[in-house]
Amino acid sequence: MLRRRIIPCLDVAGDIVVKGTRFQDLQVMGDPAELAARYEEQGADEVVLLDITASAEGRAPRPEVVERVARRLGIPLTVGGGLGSLAVIGQVLGAGADKVSLNTPALQQPELITAAAQRFGSQAVVVAVDVRRVDDDWAVFARGGSEPTAWRLAPWLKKVESLGAGEILLTSIDRDGTGGGYDLEALRSAAATVGLPITASGGGAFAEQIAAALAVPGVTGALIAGILHSGRTTVADLKCELHAMGVSVRAAG
């Protein structure tokens, strides 16, 4: 039976893990390799490393940082941030990432999804989609949620699936950092639209909220960040609570 995945996300600025609000007031949370290894030990099923300043600084995530994290990890690693060409995608995968996460570059040049899937396989291509609730629909945003696009959620997901993406990372900008729970309606809409595995992101702070997201058919993973870095909880504690709620999670070790 397929287990539900708990995926810690490390937001990095270059080579340090940070936490901020809308990319402002960045607080240093620690070393990415140390944190990733700690979360694996706690029972994390994958780790996402997102370089949140790469795009703005016109660079890709630093290969030496990716390699330092990947060397330590015995679980899958996804890397995102500023991956605007096949060459830099290849560089990040070559440094030891198992998957890349494409967001703004996918919106700017959707053909990059197809090129990456053909070269590295669909399983290596995650498309990250940031949405905001607009009336009865969800609008897709680029550049870390700061730039609206003409896309709505369902048509964009269909497009992304047809272009060869292997996974969707769906983040609710409205919920991100609020701890108010995932946008379950957006997740339901996404899962009804595509047959790809979907990871929920934005707003998850308690086991009940994670369980609610993972109860949506097609949602196979939940991304968590701040609550782990602050030490408020651990992956092990969350999984223990989730298991007690009847969610199928993997035991560490």
Partner: peptide, 8 residues
């Protein structure tokens, strides 16, 4: 969903 992705 396909690909079959995750821990099993």
């Amino acid at each position: 969903p396909l690909p079959h992705t995750g821990w099993n």
